[in-house]
């Protein structure tokens, strides 16, 4: 999963270098950021922080 996310990030960099159209580039960037944020969520949900709030 993490390999795929890094692949998406490399694609984001390639979109910068190849000057992709704004719409495609924005969609790719936003999708990658959202996917990376979603990959982070299980770490929070499954972890008990042992802190009494």
């Amino acid at each position: 999963m993490y390999t795929l996310l890094f692949l998406l990030i490399l694609l984001c960099v390639m979109a910068v270098l190849r000057d992709w159209p704004a719409r495609a580039r924005s969609l790719l960037w936003a999708g990658t950021l959202a996917a990376t944020a979603i990959a982070f969520l299980p770490h929070v949900i499954t972890h008990t922080f042992h802190i009494a709030l």
Partner: peptide, 23 residues
């Protein structure tokens, strides 16, 4: 660890914006 890799991803993603300005 996985969390370390996630942080690397966000470093790269944050750099993409100014890289686009440079490009």
């Amino acid at each position: 660890c996985p969390m370390c890799l996630l942080q690397r991803m966000f470093f790269l993603l944050s750099a993409v914006g100014p890289a686009w300005i440079i490009a």
